[in-house]
Amino acid sequence: MPTLRTRVDVLSVLCGPDRRHGSEVAVVRDGRPYPDPRARQELAGRLGCPHTVFVDDPERGAVEVHRPGRGVEPDPHALIGAAWLLDLEILEVPALGDVFARHDGEFGWVTVLAGWAPPRVLRRYPDPEQVRALPAADAGERSYAWAWSDEAAGRVVGAERGSGAGPCGGPTGAGALLLAHHLQRALNVTEAPGAQILCAPGADGTIEIGGRVFLDPVRQLLLDRP
Rank of each mutant, 00 (worst) to 15 (best):
M1N: 11
P2M: 13
T3G: 09
T3Q: 13
R7Q: 08
D9N: 10
V13W: 08
V13S: 12
L14H: 05
C15K: 04
D18L: 14
D18Y: 13
D18W: 12
E24F: 11
R29W: 10
R32A: 14
P33S: 06
Y34D: 13
P35E: 13
P37V: 02
P37H: 01
R38M: 03
A39D: 03
E42D: 10
L43F: 02
L47H: 07
G48T: 01
H51K: 06
T52G: 09
D57H: 14
P58N: 11
R60T: 00
A62R: 07
V63Q: 10
V63I: 15
V63M: 09
V65P: 03
P68W: 07
G69V: 04
V72G: 04
D75H: 04
G81K: 06
G81N: 07
A82M: 06
W84V: 15
D87M: 06
I90Y: 01
L91I: 00
G97K: 03
V99P: 03
R102D: 12
R102Q: 12
H103L: 04
H103K: 03
G108D: 03
G108A: 06
V112F: 02
L113R: 14
W116C: 13
P118N: 09
P119N: 12
R120M: 12
V121M: 09
Y125T: 01
Y125W: 07
D127N: 15
D127R: 14
Q130H: 02
V131M: 00
R132C: 06
A133F: 07
L134P: 00
A137I: 02
A137Y: 01
A139M: 04
A147V: 04
D150G: 12
E151V: 03
G154H: 04
R155I: 12
V157E: 09
G158W: 01
R161D: 03
S163R: 14
G164K: 09
P167M: 05
G169T: 11
P171I: 15
G175Y: 00
L177F: 07
L178Y: 11
L178P: 05
L178Q: 15
H181T: 10
L183T: 03
Q184W: 07
A186S: 15
V189T: 13
T190R: 14
E191R: 03
P193N: 14
Q196H: 15
I197K: 05
I197W: 04
A200P: 05
A203T: 12
I209Y: 06
G211V: 10
R212K: 08
V213N: 06
L215D: 04
R219A: 14
L222R: 07
L223R: 08
D224M: 11
P226F: 15
